[in-house]
Design a protein around this nucleic acid. Structure first.
Lengths: 222, 222, 222, 222
DNA sequence: AATGAATGAGGATTCATTCAT
DNA sequence: TATGAATGAATCCTCATTCAT
């Protein structure tokens, strides 16, 4: 993972930026936001601490970029799924969509974990431009995927696709917190009677989403 | 708010404990978790720093106790509402319930703000007993209120009351994060086109809950 | 120099405060302001870093306290001198006063070195109260010693004692910078022809002061 | 202020050197030594950071060059003044000279501010050759202007012109520190009673210099 | 039970300077 | 000569927690 030459061209710079993001990702997967220091990231990338700051203004911006990347990967996959439906059968049932969503959420724990700290940490120390860029990206993708959703689920009224996407976002945050408790809490809810709090992220997320979609379907029928 | 004598009897101790919690509440309402230091709490309570630790083992435990208190107050109010329905009309519609829920959520911003940091902060530094106690309390109230819900909403199947309560918990966490963005983000989403991210906590929460309940109603009909 | 017990009484606290100041003094004498870290001070005092901050809010405040102490010691000595003249012969000549001043300036290099960084460093990061306290102390002593000066030097008009003291302050700063050049500059001015810049602090200071006092004497005669 | 071509000839090099100095001057006037970064200087000059180092070995050397330039400008003006007297009336009184000096000090705040950090900062990180060059320039000008002074002020004994120049140098440093206090100190000395510390640079400087010259005059008479 | 003095871990960030291109 | 990517040293201060009194 060590790149020694100078990154002169834009490609090389992008490559180095990516290398930093990869190092950050690996460290974050093994530990937590707080536990990952810029020094660690630099060392793992094989560059100096100061160099990290040439590519990312703050630690928060670094992790926000990582989150953006994770979001885009997920949106890409989701969009691909929905487009296949669009092209193929044209539309699908809620249950079919839930199944597809389940696939696209596999191994997205980094996305969920980062989203959980997005508002409380990442967005606290970034500048206007960075925040704007992130939100615009998010909006664009939400609108795009939302539009696809509206095609896949015929009962959705115009703009409800966006509503669903926002709800998915809320569920991502909320469910994640239930599903990844602190170690001590994990022990606690392993106790008899507290199984209610033992929540599998994907299962719970899909179940909630299904009920929500059924609710919209129900409202559409009235 | 200054108590000078030693707290010998259990009543006196409980009184002092409550004084600390009140001080914490007031400080938290004005600022944030990080901004409230134990020194501040002690000063506002009129006691020494060390004394706080006689009543709460860690800062996290202190805030967890505050959250528990807020939860109980909310459950109390919700239960009272639902019992009135039970005693009166026997049951109610989803829309009626949503309206009631809206009332009970008025001025619960402390609850929502604390819930948002429950998993990421508060539960990270507490011991087994404390966590167990909290979760047991939460479970008991969820079961109790869930049972009442099942009475109020006839379409709910057995145990679905609990499911709804858990979902409310998830929404509380997720919606709160959307609804209380960092100042810079507030500026960003004030920009043209980004209004989608401008979310009012109560409105959005109730809307989501309604769709969810409608979904359960829909599923019940099938 | 190690004090292990807790400083409970005010006396003990003052003692500890003094211990920290002594440690700082010793370190400063051997090196420079920048080279003295709080960690060094704590270690030399035999306490923890945080403890230093219980006694001094910032590094600047610590060094300002040291300077205040040095100032007071010097004022004490000067006052004692002038009082002796007052009690004895009643007044003295400029030359006699210069000689006395020379004695009181012996081994005051810490005072001069700290004064040199007073405006550019120390006063840049202290709060209003600290600055006020320091300036008030300085003023009081300047007025007091200035008054004594007016007694010793009969040609001084009312309030000119203060003027002289302020000038001494200016000379302290200005001469110090000439007299303690950086090592490389010391080498440079050792070169043939540059002897003009080789200035002995006390000699130069006294010479300048003498001319200044003669000037006032001259103006008084007109 | 953007120069794009390579500086090949000595003239072009000198031109670029001057451009860097001008940029530095403008930045320093608006802020402070610490606040001016080499990156800022490069950007304002319209060149790359590394290029600055082709013309000045260190940041300190850059600012020393700026100071040298300021010194020379001031010496030029002073010399011109004194020569006019020499050619015209032949000599002048102390009061006349003070008035002239007052004119030549108008708008020399950059000179005074740089002189204040000369010993404590600039001379700390320059090499022998640079220091030697600067001191030799300073000496030459001091001797020259000192000689002119001796002509203008007939009571000055041989070599006392140099003495006066050195004293002016000392006053420049010392008075500057009094006259430009930190913002917080400015507030403090605005308080009742502390007006003594409110010092206007030019006024105070000239007053001190006058007393000093009167002192020399006095000594000459004896 | 109460105090409050003492502890000490913990890390992002800047920026002068270098050097490969 | 010019560039600008890369370097990496360097340190103050807060504050939750402990524990001697």
């Amino acid at each position: 993972m060590v790149i020694k030459q100078r990154a002169i061209s834009d490609e090389q710079k992008e490559e180095r930026r990516q290398a930093i993001l990869n190092a950050t990702l690996q460290l974050f997967q093994k530990t937590s936001y707080e536990a990952v220091s810029i020094a660690d990231v630099a060392q793992k990338t094989g560059i100096a601490k100061g160099t990290v700051y040439l590519y990312f203004k703050t630690k928060e911006e670094l992790f926000l970029a990582l989150l953006a990347q994770e979001f885009e990967a997920w949106f890409d996959e989701a969009d691909a799924c929905f487009k296949q439906i669009q092209v193929g059968q044209g539309s699908c049932t809620v249950d079919e969509l839930i199944t597809l969503m389940g696939y696209s959420l596999k191994n997205r724990s980094t996305l969920a974990r980062l989203t959980a700290i997005l508002h409380s940490i990442l967005e606290q120390n970034i500048n206007f431009a960075t925040a704007l860029h992130f939100k615009q990206m998010l909006l664009a993708r939400i609108l795009q995927t939302g539009a696809l959703l509206e095609t896949c689920l015929p009962f959705l009224k115009p703009r409800q696709g966006t509503l669903v996407m926002l709800h998915i976002y809320v569920l991502l945050i909320g469910v994640q917190q239930l599903a990844e408790p602190a170690p001590i809490v994990r022990q606690v809810i392993a106790q008899k009677g507290l199984e209610v709090f033992q929540v599998d992220f994907t299962d719970y997320f899909l179940q909630s989403l299904k009920v929500f979609l059924n609710g919209l379907e129900y409202q559409a029928q009235e």
